[in-house]
Design a protein around this nucleic acid. Structure first.
Lengths: 261, 261
DNA sequence: CTTATTATCTGGTATATACCAGATGTTGAT
DNA sequence: ATCAACATCTGGTATATACCAGATAATAAG
């Protein structure tokens, strides 16, 4: 009973405070003002890259509000790419985006390192499978064609940033799975099979990360991502590679240079 | 007092219900199950493109939950691009993405219509300004160089899908602002000035829409968007155009075909 | 029939609170 | 020093509720 009365008192008190806040100087929503405040702190370098922000409970106290509202501000900053979260560990400052040109696969690691980041590739799976029908139809192979499937995870500065699923046409690179795939795939294909992609078809669009992928990237299901798909063919129009990449939305900036036909 | 007691009774009752719900058959979060349910309905065509879903209050009743949770499901579907919202009007089913190739600007309208959509362009502003310093430095023009600035809004099936800000080098197309700009810019530049872009530099990344842009697209501030930037140069490497596009994230799929150098 | 006013509906923002599960830190036994 | 057990911290999910502002529909006045 006592608790109940307390709660009513507290509520009417905070209601008065709220009205004061809203009707006073600022019209902007509280969660947006908190966002601005945190964004300014981040810009000012109050927390370093990958450094943890105060907990939601701390922030809600600091801004004299509830966790729900503090969370709304954090979610907004997450959508903007300024911060990210790690499951039940906290919120962290996002490092800068890297530039990424999906039309050149010549050495992801070196390409990233040239921008002053460290990069790492990890092969999660490699096997021979039958190409799914809808993909076979799309790239112009017979249904049931065997292809190599490679699943890799790539890190930038020790942060897992993308999952990559590659389908390779074994006709052009038989036995490629016996090599280590933790390095540049195209330098391997060039060295061992003299394979060079000529035509590339790119598709890029924002999409949320599905469960297994989000998990592999230490992100929550439903986090925004960027989907990049690349189909490479040789000079005869023969299918070489289909590459599907699932990126954290805040990890990259796609950069492509194009000359007209 | 009475109200207070009521609230306690009601609360403990629903707590029991909640525990039952969670501990029963399904482990998936309620908001994700609602999401799945709605996603299935959308896929099954229960609501047509651009058709309004039931209100948050209706949905929360239907699923025996609160508005907050129903909203969480809707927000998830929004992030996935399945639905969108119009300020204080409701939630609507997103029409399919269009394919868009930013490396060819030859007739946006026709390009879109070829895919079975209708398209429309609206010029919001056109003026002569001094190119902002940081952009001048980037494209290699002298600071303070005068350029044409054009602001356009583009619709697909009468839905505003992108805001476009164009900077044109007046050296190559003097007086271009006197023409109607509600049509294809490059066909105009070709016809009147024999201008053809040769080199194109693209940048693409997900970003939230800032206030004025979100407003112009009838979206909320902070909605996810896709930012596309294109710099075009002529055969001499001379700057022709800088084009910045702010898209609704669910409106397009970027498609680019590239031949290697 | 048209226009101005009003009531209602809808999402937007906010508080207060609760319990859960995974991650982390601390403590105590070996 | 190492490892297991426990307590604590953190975000994840959920309920209940309130009031606001813009959009829309209904209604009354011209």
């Amino acid at each position: 009973m006592l608790l109940c009365e307390n709660s009513i008192v507290k509520q009417s008190l905070t209601n008065v405070l709220r009205v004061n806040q809203l009707r006073s100087v600022e019209k902007r929503a509280l969660y947006l003002r908190i966002r601005d405040y945190l964004a300014a702190d981040i810009a000012a370098g109050k927390w370093a890259e990958n450094e943890k922000l105060p907990s939601e409970r701390q922030l809600s106290e600091q801004f004299n509000t509830t966790r729900v509202t503090a969370r709304q501000a954090l979610t907004q900053l997450e959508a903007e790419g300024l911060i990210f979260r790690s499951n039940r560990r906290g919120w962290f400052v996002t490092p800068p985006r890297i530039n990424y040109d999906p039309s050149r696969d010549m050495g992801f690691v070196r390409y990233v390192e040239d921008q002053g980041f460290s990069a790492r590739t990890q092969t999660l799976e490699k096997k021979l499978i039958e190409l799914p029908d809808h993909i076979a139809d799309e790239v112009g192979l017979d249904r049931g064609t065997p292809v190599y499937e490679i699943l890799r995870r790539r890190y930038i500065n020790d942060r897992p940033c993308l999952i990559e699923k590659i389908f390779l046409n074994p006709k052009h690179c038989p036995g490629v799975l016996q090599h280590s795939l933790d390095r540049s795939l195209w330098s391997l294909l060039k060295a061992e099979y003299d394979l060079v992609p000529v035509e590339r078809h790119l598709e890029i669009y924002p999409q949320t990360l599905e469960q297994p992928i989000a998990e592999a990237l230490d992100a929550n299901t439903g986090t925004s991502g960027l989907y990049i798909r690349r189909i490479c063919r040789d000079q005869n129009g023969d299918f070489l590679e289909l590459d599907e990449e699932f990126w954290l939305h805040n990890a990259l900036k796609v950069v492509v240079s194009v000359m007209p036909d």
